[in-house]
Amino acid sequence: MSQRITIALNGEEQPLPPDSSVGDLLSILGSDGKSVAVVVNDAIIRPENRSTHQLQQGDRVELLIFAGGG
């Protein structure tokens, strides 16, 4: 089995199996992804592209949701 990769998830290191997609990452985190915005290296990854967008070693991934705010 090939080496795991490490991404920066919301600023913290997150190991992942190689060839993981954005969709795989969301599954690992237990999110259905419906109300989560995904940003990889400053680019927004739309829902229709999440299963095909493969994450690379060192990618900066941000997951954002709506929370209370005024």
Partner: peptide, 21 residues
């Protein structure tokens, strides 16, 4: 209704307001 963006946190997934609102 206003909302704010926040980083997703696995432990606080229930804080997500998009669905309920």
């Amino acid at each position: 209704v206003t909302v704010a963006l926040r980083r997703f946190n696995r432990q606080q997934a229930e804080d997500d307001l998009f669905g309920p609102l």
